[in-house]
Write a protein that binds this DNA or RNA. Structure first.
Length: 225
DNA sequence: GAGTTTGAAACT
DNA sequence: CAGTTTCAAACTC
């Protein structure tokens, strides 16, 4: 393959020999990248697909090297990043310190102006609290923050058609898991079949969900029929 | 949809 | 390590 063709990859504007590329750039949920993954342009950490260790597929990126056709270049880029930072491809959200239940951002954020209450903040975007490893200024994304609570209580479900997640606290999650475990143990004690055990656990999960929603509606003053 | 703001990542 | 630049997403109008 000629060098120019290699460099232009599957970009239909730059490489007329890849007319099918136009069909492939249909990324709806993933981001759109101008740089893609290029051996010349190692700023490829801007690409979430690459950062997550995934191949680009159905993205709109131009001159993309993050695909099976450029496996060698991709491998070299991965190696470069791992040499520089062995944790480069680890997920950003980890479990925090040993024994911690709540997840936290592995590197922490560096927000200066958003108060960590907008999606610019990686912690806020991942729905985790900022922690001691964050270097943010004017942080309002902590458990007792009144600003955060106000934001969480905002009825944004009215325009999205969804309910806020504030009803599902970690305590609720833990309680639900405990109920499901107890149900599983009971099924085991009674020597139920796997099929029946699954059914019992699912039914218990349904009851838990109902109770969560019931409590949430009541606390918000909704009428329950 | 265009322009602005923001912060992560890369670079110096 | 700190300051600067680049980039793409979030946000605003």
């Amino acid at each position: 393959m000629p060098m120019q063709q290699m460099e232009n990859g599957r970009d239909p504007e730059r490489n007329p020999d890849y007319p099918e590329a136009a069909k492939m750039n249909s990324c709806q949920t993933s981001p759109t990248y101008k740089t893609g993954l290029s051996t010349e342009n190692l700023q490829n950490k801007y690409c979430d697909c690459f950062a997550n260790g995934d191949f680009c597929s159905n993205c709109n990126c131009n001159n993309c090297y993050n695909n099976i056709l450029h496996e060698i270049e991709r491998f070299q880029a991965i190696k470069t990043y791992l040499d520089r930072n062995p944790e480069a491809f680890q997920p950003k959200i980890g479990k925090g310190k040993l024994g911690d239940i709540k997840p936290r951002h592995n590197k922490g954020c560096n927000c200066k102006r958003s108060g960590c209450l907008k999606n610019y903040c990686e912690c806020y975007e991942a729905k985790v609290m900022c922690s001691s490893i964050c270097k943010c200024i004017g942080c309002k994304n902590y458990e007792e923050s009144p600003d955060r609570k106000t934001l969480m209580d905002m009825p944004h479900y009215s325009d999205t058609g969804r309910f806020p997640l504030t009803c599902i606290s970690w305590e609720v999650v833990e309680a639900t898991c405990a109920c499901l475990l107890a149900q599983g143990e009971e099924a085991e004690k009674e020597d139920c079949s796997i099929c029946l055990a699954e059914q019992m656990i699912l039914e218990e999960f349904g009851r838990c969900l109902s109770q969560i929603l019931y409590s949430e509606f009541q606390s918000k003053g909704f009428q329950i029929e």
